[in-house]
Design a protein around this nucleic acid. Structure first.
Lengths: 134, 134
DNA sequence: AATGGTATATGTGTTTCACATATATGTCAA
DNA sequence: TTGACATATATGTGAAACACATATACCATT
C-alpha cells in the first residue's frame, strides 16, 4: 500500500518544465458543461458514451469520469437534463440522458457567453501581436 | 454585527435568474496572469495602476486587488516579474513591477495556449450553429 | 481632525477540479 | 469456470483558483 504522502502541488494551468520554462494550458472554466449540453442536443446517450463524444470537443483534455457523472446528476437535479434507466439495450444496464427545454435554454446562454469569451481572447491576442510586430 | 451564516452557494460561471433561466459567464482560468504579463510587456507600472489597465483586457470582470497583489508576489517569487520600491515618485510609495526574460517567455507560452483555446471555442460554436441552422 | 482616494497587503470560505478508489456487469479466451 | 479486461456508474478527498471581507498606512482636501 503506497503512501499518497505529499503529492507536489501542481497548478491546473501551468506546469514547470525547467527554469523559466512553463507548459501553459488555457482552459475555460466548466467547459465540459456546455460541451455536454451540445452533445445531448444532437441526440441522447448515456454517461460512458458521452466521454468519447466529449473528447472531440475537448482536444488535449483528459475526461474525468467521476466528475462527469457527478455533473450529470447535478444537472438532472436542476432540471437541465433528464435520465432513464435502460435494461432493454444490449450490454449491461445504463442510464440514458436527454436535454430538457431548460437545458436547451442554458445551452443557448453558454453559446452567447463563449462567443464573448472568444472576443476577449481575440482582443488579447490582437494586442499581443501588435507589440510583437513593431 | 451581521452573521455571515450560510451565504448561498454561488457558482462562478452560472447564476440562477429564475426557473430555467441562468446567467452564464465563460471565463478562462487564470486569465489575469497573461493579461498582467501583457500589460507589463508594454511598460512597467505598480499594482494599483495595473488594475485599471486590466479592466480594459477583462471586460465585465471585477478586478480583485487582494488576489492581484498576491499574484504579483507569487510571480516575483518565480522570477516572472521583478519589483522595486519607489519613494521618488509623487504620491505615496509604491512597488513598481517589470517583466523579466522568463516573464516574456511565459507570456509567449500563454499566447500560444490562448490561441488554442480560441480554436476550441470556435469549434464548439461552429457545431452549435450547424445544429441551429438545419 | 475627519473624510476620502491611493496603495499594498492578509484572512478565509466556496467552487472547481485532479486523482484515487469502489462496485457491478458483460465478454472473451485459456 | 476462472481470470482478465472492457463497460458502466458512481463516491472520497485534497488542492488550486477565486470571491469576498478586512487590515494598514499614506496623502490631499475640507
Amino acid at each position: 500500500m503506497p503512501h499518497p504522502h505529499h503529492r507536489g502541488h501542481r497548478s491546473r494551468s501551468r506546469r514547470r518544465l525547467g527554469p523559466g520554462r512553463w507548459q501553459v494550458h488555457a482552459r475555460v472554466e466548466r467547459f465540459v458543461e456546455p460541451a455536454l449540453l451540445l452533445i445531448l442536443r444532437d441526440g441522447s446517450t448515456h454517461g460512458y458514451d458521452l466521454a468519447d463524444s466529449l473528447a472531440g470537443l475537448l482536444p488535449g483534455e483528459r475526461i474525468d469520469m467521476g466528475n462527469l457523472y457527478r455533473m450529470l446528476r447535478a444537472l438532472e437535479a436542476e432540471g437541465i437534463v433528464e435520465s432513464e434507466w435502460r435494461d432493454d439495450l444490449p450490454g449491461r444496464n445504463r442510464r440514458t440522458y436527454r436535454l430538457t427545454e431548460q437545458g436547451r435554454t442554458l445551452l443557448d446562454a453558454w453559446a452567447d457567453a463563449l462567443g464573448e469569451a472568444n472576443e476577449t481572447i481575440a482582443a488579447f491576442l490582437g494586442r499581443y501581436r501588435d507589440g510583437r510586430e513593431t
